[in-house]
Nucleic acid binder design. Structure first.
Length: 271
DNA sequence: AGACCCCTGGAC
DNA sequence: GTCCAGGGGTCT
């Protein structure tokens, strides 16, 4: 599910509700999450959340001393607040009761999502976190270009690789490649510098517009307040196989790149 | 680069 | 029944 715009939207929604809240109890943690979080309750109870942040697709609850609780929502994870003490909701795997009578819930139909409590030191040692590429909304063209140019992999695979650039998933990879007019199978080392500039611009505009729209709700994604995003209404290629290209009318095609269905315009997007 | 794994449910 | 899904890890 959530890619950068969705996680950013959730983080912005949670920030005012969670900042300065103290965890009072952990009424529920599912077995698959408890594994690897054996002492979560003991370690998180009594701690005060000082901020909510995002890095790539990771969402952090920030505690004092650089400690964080990290969430990765994978395909179907949701975070939100409900009144504490309510009867169990389907697919909720973690509840944190807070000192204002609310409870943070982590809901995840497919159970791919993960969470964990990290000290600052342990977080920096976590390979997935340590190896994350730069933030696409903060990276400069030179840094971005260096990470693409000279790589033989197909550009779609590079965009999906969290070590190359953080936070991009299947939707925003396809949408930005269409806007930039780049075929998803183009090898990274065969994209001219001016086209890389166009790609970074496309990536940034797509992500900014998606954040402004509260993200894309295909199926499961909801904001922290439980609302759907609206950027799915603006998709130009994602999920539009067979439909006419918005630019030239050619039927959009799909292919597989990095194991993911990839939708593109065979006429507008060139290698 | 690709296959298969984790898991649940909707579309067909 | 089969195939597919906003992700990522592991193994060949």
């Amino acid at each position: 599910m959530p890619e950068l715009p969705e996680v950013e939207t959730i983080a912005r929604g949670l920030r005012p509700l969670l900042t300065d809240r103290t965890v009072t109890s952990v009424p529920f943690i599912a077995a698959h999450l408890a594994k690897g979080n054996r002492d979560l309750a003991r370690e998180v109870i009594g701690r005060t959340i000082r901020g909510v942040s995002r890095r790539g697709k990771l969402l952090f609850l920030e505690f004092p001393e650089q400690d964080v609780m990290a969430f990765h929502l994978r395909m179907t994870g949701r975070l939100g607040l409900m009144p504490s003490g309510l009867p169990p909701v389907s697919h909720v795997h973690l509840l944190l009761d807070l000192d204002d009578g609310t409870a943070l819930y982590f809901q995840d139909q497919r159970k791919f999502g993960t969470c964990g409590l990290f000290t600052g030191k342990d977080l920096k040692r976590w390979p997935f976190y340590r190896n994350l590429g730069p933030e696409p909304l903060g990276v400069d063209l030179e840094t971005f270009s260096k990470r693409i140019i000279g790589k033989k992999s197909r550009i779609k695979a590079l965009l999906l690789d969290q070590r190359v650039i953080a936070g991009i998933g299947n939707i925003y990879a396809d949408e930005s490649l269409f806007r930039a007019g780049i075929h998803p199978a183009t090898p990274g080392n065969r994209i001219a510098p001016d086209r890389l500039a166009g790609l970074l611009g496309a990536l940034q505009s797509v992500l900014e517009e998606a954040i402004a729209a509260g993200g894309s709700s295909i199926r499961d994604y909801r904001t922290a307040a439980g609302l759907v995003g609206t950027f799915q209404n603006t998709f130009q290629v994602y999920g539009r196989r067979g439909l006419p290209c918005v630019s030239c009318g050619t039927p959009l095609q799909t292919t597989k790149v990095a194991g993911r269905t990839t939708c593109f315009c065979p006429s507008c997007q060139v290698i």
